[in-house]
Design a protein around this nucleic acid. Sequence first.
DNA 1: CTAGGGTTAG
Length: 647
Amino acid sequence: MQPRPLAAVAVAATAPFPPSWAHQVRAAATQGDFLHAIALFLRMRAADAPAAPRSAVPASLPAALKCCSALGLPALGASLHALALRSGAFADRFTANALLNLYCKLPAALCCSPSTDDAAGESLESIRKVFDDMPEKDPVSWNTVVFGYAEKGRHQEALGVFREMWTDGCRPNSFTLSSVLPIFAKCSDVRKGMEVHGFATRNGFIDDVFVGSSLIDMYANCTRTDYSVKVFDNLPWRDAILWNSMLAGCAQNGSVEDALGIFRRMLHSGVRPLPRTFSSLIPACGNFASLLLGKQLHAYVIFGGFDGNMFISSSLIDMYCKCGNVSIARHIFDRMQSPDTVSWTAMIMGHALHGPAREALLLFDRMELGNVKPNHITFLAVLTACSHAGLVDEGWKYFNRMSDCYGIAPSLEHHGALADILGRAGELEEAYSFISKMQIKPTASVWSTLLRACKVHKNTVLAEKVAKKIFELEPRSMGSHVILSNTYSCSGRWNEAAHLRRSMRKKGMKKEPACSWIELKNKRHVFVAHDKSHPWYERIIGALNVFSEQMVRQGYVPNTEDVFQDLEEEQKSHVLCGHSEKLAMVFGILNTPPGTTVRVMKNLRICVDCHTVTKFLSKIAERDIVMRDANRFHHFKDGNCSCGDFW
DNA sequence: CTAGGGTTAG
């Protein structure tokens, strides 16, 4: 925004006393002091001031309308609309454009509509009506409407106006492009996005930072970060938001390394990070499950004075939970002044995944008492807690509470969670009939929670019935084939198990290789099951054998239930030795000082034998061991596990 | 008077 000293002087010279009302209103609005601006405007009107000339209304209406949209004041906006029509100010395109903007910015819920049941449609109508009635349309008018429709999710209408603008002889500019690009980002339409990219290049908009960041974001949303990088690298200069778009693009596409690289380049070129830089980076770190990286970023957040931002705190809570340190997460949570729904949800989910799950339910009760409204994800977290704690009655209670008290309709995921609760608790038939009676068509993943429960509770008959349902929906479901085969193996039905494995091979299905990893001194060590080529393999197996002698003296019996192959018992226990989580865990114990907590991550679920062994090891080696599998966290301490052997 | 980037689940 450029200061206009000469114009100001000119206005002041002609006004009754300087500076004029209109000038003051505009100045306050420009500075973002919307309340002050609107107060001034109203005072001017109320005084019916002799001091205020007739020209003061058209001169300050655009600013006043801007305040209404910024502050969300629909009723005042509507009366200004009437004033614009009465006073003839509507003929002024600045006023008309500001009115357009008002109807575009107001959320549907705030739109004053006599019959509130169609507030959204009402606001679209208001936009169209103002637009059609405008005496003259300029590029700003077109851009405002395109943006407004796009923002309200009316993509087709927005693109319609975009085309209409062409035929009306108004050329799109950088504003238009940065309103249209997010549409193609949302629906992942790279082809259309590239057409816009081409247009921007041909018409000299390619160096515009707004167009640039929209392009970067569009390509990233279409999983084409390679194009995002090209756009980014070709820009002549980059502001903080551009760096952020590129960083978020990498982070959302799962490349933490690239995101961190951008972060370093950003710092290196002297651009100060914004709060959003961290709320993009930290979740990526959490998904990468790197506690070391996460802690470094946390340190940066503290030194940079970014703690206190709710987005950042929530993402830190989630990151620490996902990286296996729920107590730091809780520390951050307890220090937040007013955690919002997301913060509570992240913390509840953290406790649900780490156990004791009761803690999650206690938090939920506190959240309700504190009048923070849970949402559908909060209930997923609560149901997860019930599932992990085996609380069937509580599960039903929360499942019903969701719609009864908060008007949230249970989604497919909520149904899946409840089915999981019933199944894990051994109420297999009830789970079966619950899934069968769902109003939403159950997916293979809902059924597979029950299949897993059938395996745990050794109900082969029901397992076959459930597996049939799954294979109808998803014939190549790898996990379900494995579980069914294991269910057969468990009950000694080797022929069926073998048959199933043969048919899997015929279909070309390969089991995802199990792997576990551990971070030590800024380095991640990955272990694949039975990978003898690992330089530490022999030493790890040697140590494992020493431990296992002690374990056997304390009553350890190998549990070969989860061994997929049909082998002799001794061979089976040999197979167990090579499991990746054991390799990673022993590697951790051998390479860290006594007393250090060992944190292991695994891509699949932990097997029964590894769980037992880890309990023994936590006692024998006197270590706290945190193990994250595909489903939850296990905290092993003094021979016990936080999951209570129920997982 | 108009435009760009973010947090919670699986």
